[in-house]
Structures are given as structure tokens and as C-alpha cells.
Nucleic acid binder design. Structure first.
Lengths: 209, 209
DNA sequence: AATTGTGAATTGATTCACAGCT
DNA sequence: AGCTGTGAATCAATTCACAATT
């Protein structure tokens, strides 16, 4: 498990491949070429072959890849069975969107609890996920290792500190705050405003036509 | 405007810089070094200096950067005044989160209308943004160039086709579908499930400690 | 005939490290 | 004395292009 030699860029694409292969499998497709897959996932076919090759020779020359075999392989690799439990911090619109997303197919992650400050939400369940009082983070969080942070920006750092104190390992941060954490905590930032602004910027400065 | 020679990675960080510089300015800070800024935005200081250098020599050696001057510069560069109008397609939880986000500071983008199929939403306004019937996309969209796509995955491609027909230039796609568009349309994918899965994957395979 | 798997080339981005300026 | 701006080095990812294989 330690020190995989798979490039990070490849690792990020694995869930994508997995999802599309699952779709193909459901549709009864038994074989697929890197070129076909490329069309579906919008990743260059050479990149796909390179990505797959890190796991060994999974395909057959002149034939392509056997969907079921490939899927079985990825299932193991992605720890598709070993579930990662996730806590959702902040049950606003964005947080609620996540709760509803939850039980779509590819579950190697599962939101097991939510936290909020709103008394109308505390004690309720959304899609069977209990919502606790944010002030009880300490008691309720248990040993959950991953948190989705969808709180107002003003609270982001303070709540992060609490999560860190409880020993969290990873945070998916949707607030615009660039939160500070110790070296051993991994943070992925998704900044919706920046995504939109940078799309606009690219449209103006890097025209496609 | 055509063919800027700024690296894409730099371009993506500009809105981030801009936001933090605005904060500093509001706090009355007048000068900042690349090292200080690095701490705040979590980007290596050499990268920051390199990024800035694409716009010329904006700083002073031994001193750092003048916040106001830098801001003025970026304002122009980011077309902070030239507003990009955006349509939000799909007013579910995720879409609503965007509508509320809207009028935070850095506005070079503005959501001007929403679309949904739900009769309870059609005809209403959320934060002063009118919600139209998705079936009236054709009449209402006008010449809006950018769309945020937050519809169920099953509708993604069909609605994309409509947007394309109306001449959209950019789509921020939050559905898990890898939508197909002509070459001259730019699509940025943000796939929440994949972000979560890949964070979990990194935690397991690329431990930080 | 078709498609993989991969060396080699290329492209893109980051980081080092320091001369030069204020 | 301190910090920028940048050449050079490094690192990471993509893409080319084709020999090998079914």
C-alpha cells in the first residue's frame, strides 16, 4: 500500500475509468479498445493505455481490453470494497447536494454523518444520514478519517482545527479559505468561484476557434 | 486578447491571487512579499514570483509588492470590470448553492438566470435571479456565453446539445457525464464523486507521514 | 487487421539558487 | 539586508510512433 508508483494524474483518473467500465459492463459490452474508451471519457487513448500499463499488461494486442477483467482489476486496486467513511461538515445547499449524491454506484466512500449549527437540522436525518450538532463534533466524529467541508468561509479554519485535533487525515475543502493544516493532513481544494472565474478567463484569453 | 502567453496553470491561480490581495487591501496592508503571500494562498513563493513575472516586473527587489498596484494590475488583466454573464441550468441543491454564492466580492462573473423543470421553481426568483422553464431555454437564454450545468446526469447531454445549438462558448459541468461538444466549446468538468474518491485513494496510497 | 505496450520525444510546470537591485 | 526576477535544472505528464502480438 505504501508508496505506489502510479503517477498522481493517473490515480485521479481511475475512478473515472471505473465508472465508465461499470456502465459498459451493465450494457453487456464485453470488450473495449483504448480508442473507444477515449471517446467516452474524453482522455487521449495513448494516455489511457499508459495509465493501464502501470498495472501490468491488462489488454490484448489487436483486441483491446476485456471489460469484466479490467473491472475486476480496478475493483481491487481502488479498494472498491474497503469503504472510506466520510463526515459532512455544514449541511447547507452544497452539503445537502452531497448527501443526496451519496448512494450512487461507486461506493468506496460513504458519508456516515453530517454536522450543522442549525437547530432545525440537528437531530434529523437526510437520506438516512444523521445530522449532529456541530458543537458535538468531538463526541460524534469517532475515528472518521475524511471530512467534506461545506461551511461558511468564516468558520472554515476554526472547524478545521477541531477536525485536525480529532485526528482527521483528509479534508475536501469547498470553502474559499485556504485552510492551514499540519503536514500529515491532506487537503484538496475545490473553489467554485475560482472554477467559474477561470473558465471565463480561458474563454476570453484562450479562444478555441 | 488573442493568444496570451501566460501558462494555463498560472491563469488558474490568478483569481486566487486576486481574492487574497483584495483581502489584504481591505485589511489596510500596503506591501506583501511573495513569501507572505505564499503562506496565505498555499502556493510556493517561487511559483508566485514566476506567475507575477509573466506580467512584467511588478515588484521591487528587497521590498516586495505594493498591494494596491498589484491589485490594479490584476483587475485589468482579469477583466474584473468586463462582466461575464452566466446561466445556471438546474436549480437543485447544488445549483441553489451557486445562486447564493453569486454576489460575493470578485464579480467578473454573474449568474443572470436559472432554468429548471420544477413548476414550483419556474417563475420564482432566488436572490433576485429569475428561474425560467427549462423548456424555454431557446427564448430566454439570449446571448449568454457561459453555463453552469447542475442537472441530473440523465439530462446532461441533451441539454448540452441545446446549449450548443444556442451558441454557448463555455460549460462548467458538474454532472458525472462526460458531455460531448464541438471543438469550439470549452468544457470544464468538476466531478464531485471523483474528487471524493480520489482524495480517499490518495490517503490510502500516498500517505503523507 | 487491429490494437496494445512502451521507448523516446515533447510539452508544461515547478523548484532551485543566486545575481542584481533597492 | 532583503526580496525580486529569472536562467538553469528538475520533475511530471502527455503524446508520438511503431515493433510486437493476437
Amino acid at each position: 500500500m505504501r508508496q505506489s508508483k502510479i503517477p498522481q494524474a493517473t490515480a485521479k483518473r481511475l475512478p473515472l475509468y471505473y465508472r465508465f467500465l461499470t456502465n459498459l459492463n451493465h450494457q453487456g459490452v464485453t470488450r473495449v479498445s483504448s480508442k473507444e474508451l477515449s471517446k467516452a471519457v474524453k482522455v487521449d487513448s495513448a494516455t489511457i493505455r499508459r495509465d493501464f500499463s502501470y498495472f501490468g499488461a491488462l489488454g490484448k494486442k489487436g483486441y483491446g481490453y476485456n471489460v469484466e477483467y479490467l473491472l475486476g482489476f480496478f475493483r481491487k486496486t481502488l479498494d472498491q470494497d474497503e469503504l472510506t467513511e466520510v463526515a459532512l461538515i455544514g449541511v447547507g445547499n452544497l452539503g445537502t447536494a452531497f448527501l443526496h449524491y451519496n448512494f450512487v454506484r461507486n461506493n468506496n466512500t460513504k458519508i456516515v454523518m453530517g454536522f450543522d449549527a442549525d437547530p432545525n437540522k440537528i437531530g434529523t436525518e437526510i437520506d438516512n444520514i444523521p445530522i449532529y450538532d456541530i458543537d458535538h463534533l468531538d463526541d460524534k466524529l469517532g475515528d472518521v478519517q475524511v471530512a467534506i467541508l461545506t461551511v461558511p468561509v468564516s468558520e472554515a479554519q476554526e472547524i478545521t482545527d477541531q477536525l485536525v485535533k480529532k485526528g482527521i487525515s483528509g479534508i475536501l475543502n469547498f470553502t474559499p479559505a485556504r485552510i492551514t493544516v499540519p503536514e500529515n493532513v491532506r487537503v484538496h481544494h475545490i473553489d467554485l468561484a475560482i472554477e467559474l472565474q477561470s473558465l471565463a478567463y480561458f474563454l476570453k484569453h484562450y479562444p478555441l476557434d
